[in-house]
Amino acid sequence: MSIAIFGYRRPLPHTQPPYLHPSYLSSLKRAPSQSLIAIPPTLSEVSGPRFSQKDLANGENDLTRQHHGEPLGERIIVSGRVVDEDGKPIRGVLIEIWQANAAGRYAHSVDQHNAPLDPNFSGFGRAVSDDEGRYTFITVKPGAYPWANHYNAWRPAHIHFSLCGPAFATRLVTQMYFPGDPLLQSDPIFNSIADETARNKLVSTFDWTLTTPSYALGYRFDIVLRGREQTPMES
């Protein structure tokens, strides 16, 4: 007897970053030097931890209400849908975000950037996608921050996103950027994705329908996770 295992599709060339990207200096000693070994899908990769709204406390998606006061900065709503490569919504995706405050400083001991910490901002939140794959965060727009990669290097404003999708094989950690940011052009992390169309998927879009009068600007960020193969691997 054999069993059909539907694996997840491999990315199209240049739509994902390489491990070694020399202009990103941290990759030089951390990228594998030997080629990865391609394996057929097994139950171990097509299964994975599952999450639901019940795993979250109320308000975990609102980064502006974790302290007594409101954080400084431009309040924003970040919302979108998680779908697969066929556009089908994926529900139950655990989405975890973390970010710098409006001044470009992380609430992290390793971050020594001389910009103020905000006692009213921790910079993390969680959400689980609903039946339509939708999620929403309320936060403040993160500031750009300097880093040591090259002379006068500044990271464009970004929010880190982690997604635990339906399977170990669909795990994704990425960063969301903001439209029109002049720092994108010189950022080696953003530009590690050779395919321009794929790269620009990381740039959110300003959205009037999410923008709420007298409250917050809205940015839309849709996320696509790997889709399933149409034909099974005999295993």
């Binding site: 199209l12 994902q16 990103y24 975890e96 609430a107 880190h160 950690v173 790269r199 998927k201």
Partner: peptide
């Protein structure tokens, strides 16, 4: 026409803020 999978980006040095 299938959609393009969202590209990966590094977790960076400060992931412990969000990934517990």
């Amino acid at each position: 026409m299938p959609l393009t999978v969202t590209p990966s980006q590094t977790v960076g040095p400060f992931f412990s803020i969000g990934l517990h």
